[in-house]
């Protein structure tokens, strides 16, 4: 079994894409954890899948739609929508200015 190796740069790239700031300790910690995860998934390589059609889902369902129309049963009020937000102002979610 080929051992996958993730390097520091790859971890930093992933952190950047996820908008995370990692300490040096964290970089090493996540590098190891992610490496283990990738290794675990690599177990799948042991299966012979030559005769298996590629798929992207496991339910065997197709064509699940809803008919256009407004239905408020699951709608959230402004209060409910904002309830768990850490930073808010005048009923807007707030982040540090990005532009």
């Amino acid at each position: 079994m080929k051992k996958s190796k993730l390097n520091k740069e790859e971890i930093l790239h992933l952190a950047k894409l996820s908008n995370l700031t990692l300490t040096n300790d964290e970089i090493e910690k996540y590098r190891k954890q992610l490496e283990e995860t990738v290794e675990y998934v690599e177990n799948l390589n042991e299966l012979d899948t030559r005769k298996v059609e590629p798929t992207s889902q496991t339910t065997n369902l197709t064509d699940v739609f809803f008919k256009d129309g407004v239905e408020n049963k699951r709608g959230l009020s402004q209060n409910e929508a904002m309830k768990n937000a850490k930073n808010k102002k005048n009923d807007y979610f707030v982040v540090k200015r990005i532009m």
């Binding site: 809803f66 256009d68 129309g69 407004v70 239905e71 408020n72 049963k73 699951r74 709608g75 959230l76 009020s77 402004q78 929508a81 904002m82 005048n90 009923d91 807007y92 979610f93």
Partner: peptide, 25 residues
């Protein structure tokens, strides 16, 4: 359309109070 792409909130958001037209989706 009357509703949004993946949920049944109204797709007509124009002029509505901020964050008053949402659902978990």
């Amino acid at each position: 359309s009357k509703s949004k792409m993946f949920c049944q909130c109204s797709a007509d958001y124009f002029g509505k109070k901020q964050n008053s037209n949402t659902c978990p989706v």
